[in-house]
Design a protein around this nucleic acid. Sequence first.
DNA 1: CGGGACGTTCAGCCCTGACTGAAACCCCAG
DNA 2: CTGGGGTTTCAGTCAGGGCTGAACGTCCCG
Lengths: 180, 180
Amino acid sequence: MRETGGVAIAPRASGERQELLAFIEEIGLAIEGQGLPRMAGRVLGALLVADPPEQSADELVATLHASRSSVSTMTRLLEGAGLIERVSRPGDRKLYYRNRPDAWHQRTLDTMEPVRNLRALAARGLALMDGAPPDVRRGLIDMYRFYAYWERELPRMIESWKAARDRGELPPLPEPGEAP
Amino acid sequence: MRETGGVAIAPRASGERQELLAFIEEIGLAIEGQGLPRMAGRVLGALLVADPPEQSADELVATLHASRSSVSTMTRLLEGAGLIERVSRPGDRKLYYRNRPDAWHQRTLDTMEPVRNLRALAARGLALMDGAPPDVRRGLIDMYRFYAYWERELPRMIESWKAARDRGELPPLPEPGEAP
DNA sequence: CGGGACGTTCAGCCCTGACTGAAACCCCAG
DNA sequence: CTGGGGTTTCAGTCAGGGCTGAACGTCCCG
């Protein structure tokens, strides 16, 4: 059994609770800016600062003051996107959610689909304009070349990030009082 | 003086007009997926396949069947974002618009602001959780490290793209019947 | 000094899509 | 088979933002 009722997002000091909720809210806004529902971002934010890292749907409902349906929809959405994962425990009928370690570069890899789409669109445009003079086709040519390059290099960059991380060659963590 | 009334998006064959409009519409959808208004994407698309490349506001209104206010708002938005530019001609009171050659990597560079924001958020989260055990902070640590890396590498990649382009080392253009 | 062509701004309509509450569903325990 | 905790689904509501029409500047030409 598990302690319920209390909100389980690291209430380590009384004043910090407000700040944590504000933090969650800002993550929500940031994720909303990336095209996902704001509530999805809130769930992600709640899991980021959750203590313990696994949270049940009810706990998320309590911390976010959201409806069960929202939490259910958003957890499924986030799981489908590879950003969180569900974990179940023997002898416990609840499902728990926690953020996946590679959520953020997964998030970045998701931009590959639009990139492919734009490159394909540029190719289509060039086909439509194949008889036109060079200065008329210039824009489409630039577009095609850029996205072709990007489509090739972006996965490479993610790979080299993973390699650097696995070798322990990582950017340092921020100093406590670093610039915003 | 300039030919007006007729729609000036490369009407080089009668059947292609439909396809060009469909192309513009898809660019609109793609840009909408990036967080800009769909109409902004349509303007960008229209300028991409425009013949001649410079188009007046009225011509855009005609091709897009949009209102003057939309076109005015969107051209200003796109100019502010560095995606198109205005050009004026002596002895002509109209303004003309054309797409900027570096529109697409500009578009990609625009993702830097969210990246900086997310890194800063991760730093804030780490500050809030500074006494917590490592497994609780793990998610924030991954987030911070990834975005710090990305913030450093993304501008480098754009630069190396520009360098490759200026040296003429570019991905080849698509073959006429290439894979979608 | 009008007048007209262009461009911008503003209030309002409308449509999408996020979020909710309640009902339906599923699964295991007894 | 029945009960109940947990999750999903569905219809409905509401807010936000895109787009428009019309009014408002602004500039230049007669």
